[in-house]
């Protein structure tokens, strides 16, 4: 009986260690900089297109990097994350953002088609970015074909395979 209790205690300890290790691993930030959308959009009053400059007129929306950041981050701010950005800028190295929103290469997705021609708001696919204090770790929605077709059907847009697949 006593042995079993001892055994259980050890097991719990091992599990606790694993859980601690696991949680610390998860806490390690996914993106290089804890970019705060909430602050930039809400407090500073920027718009999505100010930084994601190609979202309206190009296929790819573009993830902003130091050339855009440096327009404002000319000096150090009183913020750890901002300092990181400044460091990247001063060393002239690109911030290694991890791309989160990705459509498979056999599908043709164009931001221009959706933002400019389709007049769809950014939040429809990317969520309420204005409320997000941390950068994306995973896509806002699971971008599979059913999700695409859902919207295409609702808005009576073509569901021809060859309009998107290639």
């Amino acid at each position: 009986m006593h042995d079993i209790r001892k055994y259980l205690v050890t097991l719990v300890k091992i599990m606790a260690i694993f859980m601690l290790w696991g949680s610390s691993w998860a806490q390690e930030s996914f993106q290089p900089v804890q970019f705060n959308h909430d602050y930039h959009l809400g407090d500073l009053g920027l718009t999505c297109l100010d930084c994601h400059k190609n979202a309206k007129h190009q296929e790819r929306a573009s993830i902003p990097n130091i050339d855009i950041c440096s327009e404002c981050h000319e000096d150090e701010f009183d913020n750890v994350e901002a300092d990181k950005v400044f460091e990247y800028i001063s060393f002239e190295t690109a911030i290694p953002w991890k791309r989160v929103h990705r459509v498979p290469d056999h599908a043709y997705f164009s931001h221009r088609r959706h933002v400019q021609l389709g007049e769809i708001d950014c939040i429809v696919c990317h969520g309420d970015v204005e409320q997000m204090a941390a950068p994306f770790e995973r896509p806002f929605v699971n971008m599979d074909m059913n999700w695409c077709l859902d919207c295409h059907e609702k808005s009576q847009i073509s569901d021809e395979c060859s309009d998107c697949h290639r």
């Binding site: 007129h57 296929e59 043709y108 164009s110 221009r112 088609r113 400019q116 021609l117 060859s162 309009d163 998107c164 290639r166």
Partner: peptide
């Protein structure tokens, strides 16, 4: 066909 997809989009834009 990828060129057609792009060309159509450009024309519409």
């Amino acid at each position: 066909i990828h060129r057609l997809q792009k060309a159509k989009e450009l024309a519409r834009a």
